[in-house]
């Protein structure tokens, strides 16, 4: 670990100085990096950007409500083996054939250093992070079926995203480097938009930003539009060739920004009457 490459963001991903710093700290300390933030602030995309920036392969583990910690390491395909033994297909004596490695397992076995994204860890059961404690600490696990211990050849860069990290246990958090991506300020947002819409008219972008931040400030809007929605919105406006002036009076393609019926209705009747 004499020379570590540093993360600088990529041409497709604008990272704040703060975030770049934290990514580098996490890589250097070899701690998992836990990222929280509003939806649409680029938590998941960060892993892609880190992998691209370091030139490393990315392994993604999308956590679901039914995910178990074991799934990330390996799964022993019992049913396949039973079936093979019943019908005499395949070599049933070679257990190795029935061990299917998950993203973490693959990363540990890889000759090359990898970036592992554990996406939306909070979706899984409350116990899920605790079950991973040892594996993340020691970067090794045992395959019980074969008695083999798999130790990481190259400690992977682990990036974990979470939407509601309150659920994560303390012991787990202690091992992570934590960063909260706050919603970008208009200036930062302009940089981000430049990446996505390099040819967009300045005037349109300016006007859109103004309307967008206004919309976010409305207390009636419950699901606040995020960066990705703004990018889509500008894309839609450009394709339709909407004149920036129109934006002063109305919101064309509002459905791109607001996805909830109640928000659309609320916006139509600002200011809203309270209940009786």
């Amino acid at each position: 670990m004499t020379q570590t490459p540093t993360f600088q963001g990529t041409s497709h991903y604008i990272a704040s100085a703060e975030l770049r710093e934290i990514v580098n700290v996490a890589c250097d300390l070899q701690r998992p990096l836990l990222i929280r933030g509003e939806p649409g602030t680029g938590k998941t995309v960060l892993a892609r950007a880190v992998a691209d920036s370091f030139g490393l392969p990315l392994l993604t583990w999308h956590v679901k409500s039914s995910s178990k910690a074991q799934d990330g390491l390996y799964v022993y395909d019992t049913v396949q083996r039973l079936n093979d033994s019943r019908f005499g297909t395949g070599d049933v004596h070679d257990i190795q054939r029935y061990i299917k490695y998950g993203p973490l397992g693959k990363a540990f076995r890889s000759e090359q250093r990898t970036v592992v994204l554990i996406d939306e860890i909070d979706k899984a059961d409350i116990e899920f992070p605790n079950d991973l404690l040892h594996e993340l600490d020691a970067m090794s696990f045992m395959v019980f079926e074969t008695g083999e211990t798999i130790t990481a050849r190259q400690r992977p860069v682990i990036i974990i995203t979470s939407n509601a990290e309150k659920e994560l246990p303390d012991a787990f958090l202690r091992r992570c480097v934590f960063h909260y991506i706050s919603f970008p300020e208009p200036d930062e947002m302009r940089e981000i938009l430049k990446v996505h819409h390099p040819e967009a008219e300045q005037k349109l972008v300016q006007q859109c930003l103004q309307r967008f931040y206004w919309l976010r400030e409305q207390p009636e809007v419950r699901k606040k539009p995020s960066t990705s929605e703004l990018v889509d919105w500008i894309g839609a406006l450009r394709r339709a060739g909407v004149d920036p002036k129109i934006l002063e009076q109305e919101f064309p393609f509002l459905g791109v920004l607001l996805k909830k019926e109640s928000d659309l209705q609320a916006l139509r009747r600002v200011p809203r009457k309270p209940y009786r």
Partner: peptide, 28 residues
């Protein structure tokens, strides 16, 4: 360890972010 490896590099603002990343568990 992070300081030893030169992460805050004598800057109070970098130290602020570094220590925050390590000491805070969530944005609360």
């Amino acid at each position: 360890t992070a300081l030893e490896r030169g992460h805050a590099a004598c800057s109070l603002s970098r130290f602020y972010y570094l220590a925050r990343a390590i000491c805070c568990r969530n944005e609360l």
